[in-house]
């Protein structure tokens, strides 16, 4: 986990809150590399939730002609 972490600041993180690359908005990363911390929990359910959330956002942005 963690090697393309999410964060608020493009200077210290790779992905934004929608799992988009800060610098390349039509590329999304929704596997374990997005994790900003590991927690103790098995993470797979969180990957599923983040993926579904990011897909919903991506299609919404495509409809608005933003992607």
């Amino acid at each position: 986990m963690g090697t393309a972490r999410m964060g608020k600041d493009p200077k210290s993180s790779v992905l934004n809150r929608w799992n988009q690359l800060h610098e390349v908005p039509n590329v999304f990363v929704t596997d374990g590399s997005c994790m900003a911390s590991s927690s103790w929990q098995n993470p797979s359910l969180t990957y599923m939730a983040l993926t579904a959330r990011a897909c919903n956002y991506a299609v919404d942005q495509m409809k608005k002609q933003n992607l």
């Binding site: 986990m1 090697t3 790779v14 999304f28 596997d31 590399s33 991506a58 992607l67």
Partner: peptide
Amino acid sequence: AKIIFCCASTLGTTSIL
């Protein structure tokens, strides 16, 4: 494609990027 989803696992996606 218009959009790309990277879901290749932590180290798989990181290697590709």
